[in-house]
Design a protein around this nucleic acid. Structure first.
Length: 562
RNA sequence: GCGCUUGUAGCUCAGGUGGAUAGAGCAACUGCCUUCUAAGCAGUGGGUCGGGGGUUCGAGUCCCUCCAAGCGUGCCA
């Protein structure tokens, strides 16, 4: 919270406590301890700027009706030297407070002083966080779900760094295991199809056009010379040709989507460094495994899972979870991140408890891993749902989406909803009716302020500095509402970081735009009174800076003209 | 069967640790530009918060139960 907000809330606690003590002392309230009470912001501004339920929670202790307690407390309240100018009793016994002009002035002074750092917080106290997101299979192009995960993950990382964490972004490349075998098989068959008849693609292979293209390109370079070689050699050559191309395509596509990773972590590196084997050995050492039918099982049921699961198959090959455990061991122990956050599709929800159970068995606090589940995106076109099958070859890829939809809009829309809520993405709306898109609403507020500032500058008025006596002139309802919203920024960033939910940021930005547009329609900045003009200009500058920062957090452009 | 998630206006969704008359946006209708950007603002209509119990001064929020939807429950990843 910003210190002005914090100070105001603390003042109410102190006011109530000392008033209640005074009432007890002069005998109007019985001798009893005042229980913990809450200070909150009422939904309806008619009920004041702040409200407390102190009288209600004290009803039992004082053995009196809440309105009576409220009256006695209220009779002993002294507001001098506080941010409050008025307090009154309402409803079932609420004590409501109204902020004075000084509060609003101090909020703007604070915001102006902090400038582009206003809203930042030390909430995370420098803890290191690794945010892993997208991590799409390198066996093909990214789909629409990766687009959502990318927007959410990238914005979450930015948000956490605003909230005082040290953040790194990571893409985990599944360049080993069965997915790659399947990739190799698919490439192999497509390659052979170029030279032989009757080669069929099995049901569980990749049927996409990208596989065919890779096989053709490979054939153009090498001709048919791999046809006669062993299957193993041929597949190895195909994979080492196609995989790097796919990975660099992923990187390029994500860069276009404005996502830049600190690290591209290869699964194969966990195998080549023997970390997979080592972690398996550690699991066995932990004593939470057993052998059955030739396989090694993990007693996950001892850690809250409903079933045990296999770590090493009877054929000696580890299951997919072992590299995953090794990967998270690497994140939290080898590299020592305080926290790891993964963004996964909700269809992986059964996987989270298993991974956490394994970490617990290794003595790692599972709370250090947060898995954010993301519901799938329903892509809508012409009022109908677009199927997302990767195998049909007709799937909408990330790149197809970005060709159709402005990147600003895509990043904003994907961050409008909480990760764990179903998300319909209407292509027609995003493409054809862009002016209705909420992202433009926010950008418009920014551009509007730039225009006001520009117009005033032409007249020779620009904001050099603003003093408190000028800011005290901001007393209209719209100005106060806008400033209250500015005051809440740091708290919102902290709450969003705590919930690991960047959708709170888009919501805040939209609300900021709304409050600004309302202010704009009710008051003029360009007025005769120099002090008032200066104060309103200062308000505008603060809103503009905040909006620019918020859009920046989303990596969305903040245009000066629209 | 068991487990996870979800259910709030016609549609898409907000509703920190329980609070006052449940809010936005979109869609529909009506007003507001000779003055700083009308991609804006103001107003109207629209609700058994999935159903039913319970906890209490007070429940969309907490507990139980039922209903519906999605997903998971592989020696697949």
């Amino acid at each position: 919270m910003s210190f002005v907000v914090k100070k105001a809330e603390e003042q109410i606690y102190n006011i109530i406590k000392s008033a209640s003590a005074a009432a007890i002392k002069n005998g109007t309230l019985p001798e009893a301890e005042l229980p913990d009470f809450k200070v909150e912001i009422p939904a309806d501004r008619a009920n004041g700027d702040y409200s407390t339920n102190a009288a209600m929670v004290a009803a039992r202790a004082f053995r009196l009706a809440p309105p009576k307690i409220a009256a006695e407390i209220s009779a002993n309240i002294d507001l001098s030297g506080t941010y409050f100018e008025k307090c009154e009793i309402a409803g079932a016994g609420f004590i409501n407070f109204n902020l004075s002009a000084e509060y609003y002035a101090d909020v703007l002074l604070d915001a102006g002083e902090k400038g582009e750092n206003y809203g930042k917080s030390d909430f995370g106290s420098g803890k290191s966080v690794l945010v892993e997101f997208v991590s799409a299979n390198p066996t093909g192009p990214m789909h629409i779900g990766n687009a959502r995960g990318g927007a959410i993950g990238d914005c979450l990382a930015e948000l956490l760094s605003w909230a005082g964490y040290h953040v790194e972004r990571e893409f985990y490349v599944n360049d080993a295991g069965n997915q790659i075998n399947k990739f190799a098989l698919s490439l192999d068959l497509r390659y052979l199809q170029l030279y032989k008849d009757g080669v069929e693609m099995p049901e569980d292979s990749y049927h996409g056009q990208d596989i065919i293209d890779h096989a053709k390109a490979f054939a153009e370079i090498h001709g048919d010379k791999y046809v006669s070689l062993s299957e193993d050699e041929r597949r190895k050559a195909l994979v080492s040709y196609a995989l790097p191309l796919n990975i660099s395509a992923l990187e390029q596509d994500l860069l276009r989507y404005r996502i830049k990773y600190d690290t591209w972590f290869l699964e194969s590196s966990l195998h080549s460094s023997s970390e997979v084997e080592r972690v398996l050995a550690l699991m066995i050492e932990s004593g939470h495994t057993y052998e059955s039918e030739g396989a090694i099982w993990f007693k996950a049921s001892e850690f809250g899972c409903d079933k045990d699961f296999v770590l090493r198959r009877s054929n000696g090959v580890p299951t997919y979870v072992v590299p995953d455990i090794a990967y998270h061991y690497n994140k939290l122990v080898t590299r020592g991140f305080d926290k790891a956050i993964n963004i996964l599709g909700a269809d992986h929800h059964g996987y989270a408890p298993r991974l956490k159970a394994a970490l617990s068995a290794l003595g790692i606090d599972p709370e250090r891993l947060d898995i954010i589940l993301m519901q799938m995106v329903n892509l809508m076109r012409d009022g109908e749902r677009v199927k997302l099958s990767k195998r049909s070859g007709k799937a909408i890829t990330l790149i197809t989406l970005l060709d159709e939809v402005p990147i600003d809009a895509a990043r904003f829309i994907f961050n409008q909803r909480e990760a764990n809520s179903q998300c319909d993405f209407d292509l027609d709306l995003a493409v054809e009716q862009t002016s209705q898109n909420p992202v433009y609403y926010c950008q418009y507020a920014h551009a509007r302020i730039c225009s006001i500032i520009g117009k005033l500058a032409q007249k020779g008025f620009s904001l050099e500095s603003v003093n408190k006596s000028e800011l005290l002139l901001l007393t209209s309802f719209e100005e106060k509402e806008l400033i209250r919203h500015i005051a809440s920024l740091t708290g919102v960033i902290e709450a969003a970081a705590k919930a690991e939910d960047p959708s709170k940021i888009t919501k805040y930005a939209q609300d900021l735009a709304t409050h600004f547009h309302k202010f704009y329609n009710a008051q003029r900045v360009d007025v005769e009174d120099e002090a008032l003009r200066n104060a309103r200009l200062a308000l505008c500058v603060s809103v503009k800076d905040i909006m620019k920062n918020l859009l920046g957090m989303l990596k969305i452009d903040a245009p000066e003209k629209m």
